[in-house]
Design a protein around this nucleic acid. Sequence first.
DNA 1: TCGACCCATAACCTGTGGGCATGGTGGAAC
DNA 2: GTTCCACCATGCCCACAGGTTATGGGTCGA
Lengths: 293, 293
Amino acid sequence: MVELETRELEYFVAVADELHFGRAADRLSIAQPALSKAIRRVESRLGVRLFDRSSRHVALTPAGAALLEHGRHALNAVGAAVRHARRAGDADARLRLVLKPGGDAHLLSGMLAAYADRPDARRVDILFSGATDRVDHLRDGRADVALLYVPFDDLDGLAHETLHVEGRVAVLPAGHRLAGRDELRLADLEGETLPRWKGVRDDGSGWETGGLGPDADARRPEVADVTQMIHLITLGRMIAVLPRSLVEPVPAGIVCVPVTDASPSTLVIAWSERDRRPLVASFVAAAVAASTA
Amino acid sequence: MVELETRELEYFVAVADELHFGRAADRLSIAQPALSKAIRRVESRLGVRLFDRSSRHVALTPAGAALLEHGRHALNAVGAAVRHARRAGDADARLRLVLKPGGDAHLLSGMLAAYADRPDARRVDILFSGATDRVDHLRDGRADVALLYVPFDDLDGLAHETLHVEGRVAVLPAGHRLAGRDELRLADLEGETLPRWKGVRDDGSGWETGGLGPDADARRPEVADVTQMIHLITLGRMIAVLPRSLVEPVPAGIVCVPVTDASPSTLVIAWSERDRRPLVASFVAAAVAASTA
DNA sequence: TCGACCCATAACCTGTGGGCATGGTGGAAC
DNA sequence: GTTCCACCATGCCCACAGGTTATGGGTCGA
């Protein structure tokens, strides 16, 4: 019935990472022969060769590559299950909310107030995370709810409610050639330098550029947060297209001009689709109520 | 390092399903004391009580409920990883395509021809599955690619390419009061009886009704496939709103009228987002090429 | 109050996963 | 070509995790 034990999967992933039985064994704090045996055991049970190995070289077979890809995910799922269970057992756990600094469309204080009024309210821990790993926080149980931006963040495996929809604005230095305009279209921004978010693989989906073609893609400045970006914009090094609320209040030396044909940005509150704790439902309800009030 | 073994998770799920150690042990083909010990072992390792149990009654704690929910998913992930590995190791495996009968927008033969022309073409096994478990086939490795309808099917964890976008039509019996119209709006269908798809939980998202309010929701006829639905429509028992190609050629006694404000239906080819085998990429490329030709 | 049901505990046994020592093999170095 | 070394495989042994059977002891229903 059991096809593959968690431990065996961990062993396999270690070897696949290192492509070296000795180092992998080291990392796992077991002896190398035990690891060799474990891998062979798995191979024979699955009826598939996972590594091509000589005494000199170790490489993944196609089957190994598939197992690595899917196995990593499976390990994460087991880890997430454990974290969620541990947490659900902790009756007086706090609610953990993760958001990007400034990424609350000025709704945070209202949400917290609305939640605090509820009879079942807990204390709320607020975690800030600039990169897109806010979604990872949810998936692996490090946080209970997150504020995310659609279509920027990837909602796979998450449930969500919409809090706020807003247009996007071009963020320009005061002296910019377009700074005087009342509104812009994406075509007006052709040739401008746009940022690249740190840690985000740019998949060419065109969200970041709003549909602009790949410009001087190689040398787009990499930014980690909005503050840093504002700084670079003030210096005239680049411009950006952002949800309006991310740049409010508008800093000195910066001008915001609505971009009429950029797809609107939606702020959502998200949680794991398998997480049905009242704790979460209650906070979500409060957040939705606060945002529509 | 290891938090929870696959086997322990299976034991836990069995007990959570049965809420009875004896029956669960039976189902697992082990003795009851072994199961009791295993569960206590897990509880102490996780530091969480999973069951409230007296000698008379067994019930899940909140922590147990969380572990059940996430643990089932984790077990599926492990199983899927194994299936994918086994399959990737089989060099001359066929490509398995799953679709709903008639759910190919008449593109299937073109796709297969385009794929057969490729140098790396394999034989293609075609699986038919009426319900929404086509996505499950992908997720657990029973199929390599699927034809799905957006926004009907849930694409979580899947990658996809669009093949075809088409409007939706109201499918009416010939004598229906609206059968003579050139086009309709959703509002015109107010009060009509619409089907419920077998095995699909109706989440009230309004896809099926295209935004109509919950009508006589309780007694909407349950249908399993399009043929059956056409039959019921011919009998005047209900009507439906479907992608146009699903009812082509139009059967006798049936009239199709475009619904102008129903969101369009998109046929996509989908595969597991973790599956990067050339086998899959090649078929997808052929399918996309064939559908745009 | 008795009996039946069902989970926990006790005592014992066994398979297997892991440790150590060593063998075998292919590359690189000279 | 020979040597040497890096590295994976094999053999053998042991410990213990995880299984079994027998039994204990609550708790509910009759």
